[in-house]
Nucleic acid binder design. Structure first.
Lengths: 200, 200
DNA sequence: GCACAATTTGAACCATGGTTCAAACTTCCG
DNA sequence: CGGAAGTTTGAACCATGGTTCAAATTGTGC
């Protein structure tokens, strides 16, 4: 098992390797989907032997959990950026929407693997779900803020947030980089549609 | 194997049994999701032995394909109904949206199993995908019609249709009958959001 | 009742794919 | 070098769960 050494040099190297594996796993999960991705596929993507993965990660579930956390980290970063600025609610919602679509679709076209919390069992599921809830809360907050300011019409922020997120998450199912539009362009069109939808 | 008899009495009985099995499978797929649903679970839902399922269906994939076709049939019916009437585009889009949400969420809360074409292999995949394309075309048509009539603003109908469908399909991931709102209410809120989003 | 077809059973079979592990290899000081 | 710690290998192991099938049961026409 890894992590038996106290040497910081070694620990550093292990961390790098872990990240490398996670990146590869992330790619393969996106490309092939959750079920079609085998440990052997991930190993092949790295040119290493299957068993080696287990030197760095306990099992496939842990691997997936970290991959999902990675995606959520990116989204949470985005949320922080958007929260920071002082634009009106509609502009901020648009930014959040565009960023979300770009993050989910940049690089390799993908499956929903990065978002399928249902695939995780209980220690992990809660952890990832909590992060996800936190992220989704950002949408609700912006919506509520916009309603309070009178820019948005009155709606149930929970329902509206989930409807918006559905539209965005679903893009990974149909967006293809070679489809003639960039992820950002798609993001803009989504923003246009959804922000207009909530305007007062 | 079934279907060796030419007796219409027998054929009728077989059809009924098939429907019964498909209904059960439909329920279990919704409840447990695609991967968590075993043949044994479906058999248990019916109180029959596993092997018996194979008397009526070739394999799990065929079962899933028929279940998905059943869902699509319902949606296509809806599309026909909506096409029939002579309301303006915005009203028709709203009807389609509401109906879609209700169909996907009535009865048991669900997973996306009914919509995961990716889980099917090539003979079936094409067949189901074609039906799905036909259904999605309805959205594009209404959008184009609305744009032509000037009720809707100019957008890329393909992208807009997929964005709308994403919001709707995603409802099965979060809607719960005991959540205080009915599927129809959710459908109405989605319609409000999305129709407003495309209005000129 | 009897024979024959149709249906149902469930234990056994088997493919897939996650997981283990002892051996081989590398790295890095002393 | 030498050897200990760290890393990698890949064949073998094994659990899960879809699938088969011969036997048992039920239904039907004569």
């Amino acid at each position: 098992m890894v992590q038996t050494s106290a040497d910081p040099r070694v620990q550093q190297k292990v961390l790098e390797k872990k990240r490398e594996i996670l990146d590869a796993a992330s790619r393969v999960f996106r490309r092939r989907g959750l079920q079609s991705t085998g440990m052997r596929d991930i190993a092949a993507e790295l040119g290493m032997a299957v068993g080696n993965l287990y030197y760095y990660f306990k099992d496939k579930e842990e691997l997936l959990a970290f991959v999902q956390e990675g995606t959520l980290e990116g989204l949470l970063d985005l949320a922080v950026q958007v929260r920071k600025n002082r634009l009106p609610a509609d502009a901020r919602l648009a930014l959040l929407i565009e960023g979300h679509v770009v993050l989910l679709n940049e690089g390799i076209p993908g499956s929903l693997a990065h978002l399928e919390v249902e695939a995780l069992r209980e220690p992990w599921r809660r952890k990832v779900q909590d992060q996800r809830d936190a992220y989704e809360r950002t949408f609700r907050e912006i919506l509520e803020e916009g309603m309070a300011a009178g820019v948005f019409r009155q709606t149930d922020p929970k329902v509206t947030a989930m409807a918006i997120l559905g539209a965005l998450n679903w893009t990974v199912k149909w967006f293809r980089p070679d489809g003639g539009k960039t992820a950002l362009e798609i993001g803009r069109e989504c923003a246009e549609l959804l922000v207009r939808g909530v305007m007062a």
